[in-house]
Design a protein around this nucleic acid. Structure first.
Lengths: 339, 339
DNA sequence: CTGAAAGCGCTAACAC
DNA sequence: GTGTTAGCGCTTTCAG
């Protein structure tokens, strides 16, 4: 029966070897089969496990990745977190989570604490970083990769889906569907994702000689999206289609349309979202949307950050991953639409 | 312009004091106003911040709490995680997240790694711990609190909602609504929450001289719940009401009922869930359910674990928090129902 | 109140 | 291969 925490020295004494021999066995350095067995046996007897903190201090590698995330109510993020955590775990890394409801101050505080913990890298999900902060991370030698948000000139790597393209795909689809009065409840104007989707969408409409009858910033927020929907439908000439900047808001738009305004989707109004979170596929919404390929985005994120941890000189990358339009039942399907 | 990471010794030299003086200033120990100012100034100039890992090693307190969670697709958990993280951050603690898809092996591995990181405490969300593991945590002196899951004789504290009572409330409501053929798609049989809700429900029905026409284990899983729904409705005498073990499954049940079987809820079948996740309130589902008061559960969890960190001798607690039945539109409302 | 000195538990040269 | 010897950056006695 094991009584209390033991150290490598305890193990060394029991095994009759030096303390460094124990260290070697556990850190995978060279050791003869004979000592390895002795050490393992002694360690098991004592319930010994190496102290990660001490190891981190010496090696300068904590094997902790800091994750800064703004909110978890949009299903896209918990899913990403789950995948990120699983993949990182498989590589022997762990995630220290920080919530940073958008607000420069919180982010600063959070990143400082992350630096204090000597994290090997930082992943930010839908959070922007000031250049001052960027500078701090650089000084601390901590690579940063931004997940689902780009920031030009930030000096950080970023992984996003092809948002501009995505916006275009939606414009094409809606126009092909014969819609003439198209509106857009956009993602937050302060985010690259929101801006890029909007830009692609407007450019795409322009290619067909159309322009949106209205564009409202939905702030990636449910309530704002509901309000925007009401405003849109109260216009003298209401839209016959709405592209909503992400699925999370699109659900709110559909709820408002169907429940409050008693309109049918897509017969009265077509609705399209962005993300393809699991909920979009559920029968209650059956939402047409552009898929952000979470798995591939997560893979790219991990690859990028781990590469930069191993080789800090590695240049910054901006990776964009293309995602398909997923056609479901919330928007009118153009005649003869195949792809 | 700051060039690279600096240590307390660098600060000490620049400030013209001893290294221990610097330590005192940053750890809040006694120091004269004069030295404090000198030290602060030098630290700012160098961009110095104390190394949390080194501090943790000395003090034996990492201020890291390990969180073990099985899945994040049920909205209840990300919300809890968000709240937990926020509250802990406010107290100067941080969360190291581990995913442990149910499976004893993963949990063991994960908890071992948590111990290696010298976490101050462990919170498990919907994850069970073997007595062997419990023993290990005890040896390492790490308090464990189980969130949303109880485990008798585990020696750990647990925070749950009043699941037995909740099950009863649902039975009362359904019977009052005049239902005569009530079925139950239960939460996973291997979980205390699933079992308690079922037991309360069955006991509650018995008080009205009824018994469920069928009980199927839905495993807290969407697909299993869909399958169970089909099986239930294919019976010669299908149910007129279904109590589903949590909201996450209830959504699947409603999707299957309405879309696939073309039945109306609640006119053809009443559906009741458990948890009251945000989605339950959205118009598309408008689900009647029992609320698990996340905020209060989180508060209790944090209070319990912090208290045990400060005073390890503190006795184990099993806290149950009562939650109300939230009446919405997915189940027939009994005539004259007030409360 | 402050500095000197002794480690926390471990890894990483360095000789043998 | 293996033991010996230095520390990693900090907190904490212990004198003064």
């Amino acid at each position: 029966m094991i009584k209390s925490k033991s150290t490598s020295l305890d193990v060394a004494r029991l095994a009759g070897v030096s303390q460094s021999a124990v260290s070697r066995v556990f850190s995978g350095a060279s050791a003869s089969k004979a000592t390895a067995t002795k050490v393992r046996k002694a360690a098991d007897a004592l319930g010994y496990r190496p102290n990660s903190l001490a190891r981190a201090m010496i090696t300068g590698k904590s094997r902790i990745i800091g994750l800064v995330v703004a909110y978890l109510d949009n299903q896209f993020y918990p899913i990403a977190l789950e995948r990120l955590s699983n993949a990182l775990q498989a590589q022997g890394y762990h995630i220290l989570v920080f919530m940073a409801a958008n607000g420069e101050d919180t982010v600063i505080k959070v990143v400082e604490e992350l630096i204090d913990y000597q994290v090997d890298g930082i992943i930010t999900a839908s959070v922007a970083m000031s250049s001052n902060l960027t500078q701090r991370c650089a000084v601390a030698g901590i690579p940063v990769v931004m997940f689902n948000r780009g920031q030009d000139g930030s000096g950080h790597s970023s992984i996003t889906s092809a948002n501009v393209e995505g916006g275009r795909k939606i414009a094409d689809f809606l126009v092909a569907g014969g819609h003439k009065r198209i509106a857009h409840i956009a993602g937050w104007e302060g985010s690259s994702t929101g801006r890029d989707r909007r830009r692609g969408f407007i450019d795409g409409l322009a290619d067909h000689d159309q322009r949106p009858i209205a564009v409202i910033d939905g702030m990636f927020d449910r309530d704002a999206a509901c309000k925007a929907t009401r405003a849109l439908m109260a216009r003298p000439v209401p839209p016959d289609a709405i592209f909503v900047g992400n699925d999370h808001m699109a659900f709110a738009v559909m709820d408002t349309l169907r429940q409050e305004l008693e309109l049918r989707v897509p017969q009265d109004v077509s609705v399209i979202g962005y993300d393809d979170v699991p909920l979009a596929a559920w029968a209650a919404y059956d939402l047409t949307t552009v898929r952000q390929p979470v798995n591939r985005m997560v893979e790219a994120t991990i690859e990028t950050i781990l590469a930069k941890i191993v080789d800090p000189a590695r240049p910054t990358q901006k990776i964009e991953i293309d995602g398909p339009l997923i056609v479901r039942g919330s928007a009118r399907i153009p005649k003869g639409w195949t792809q």
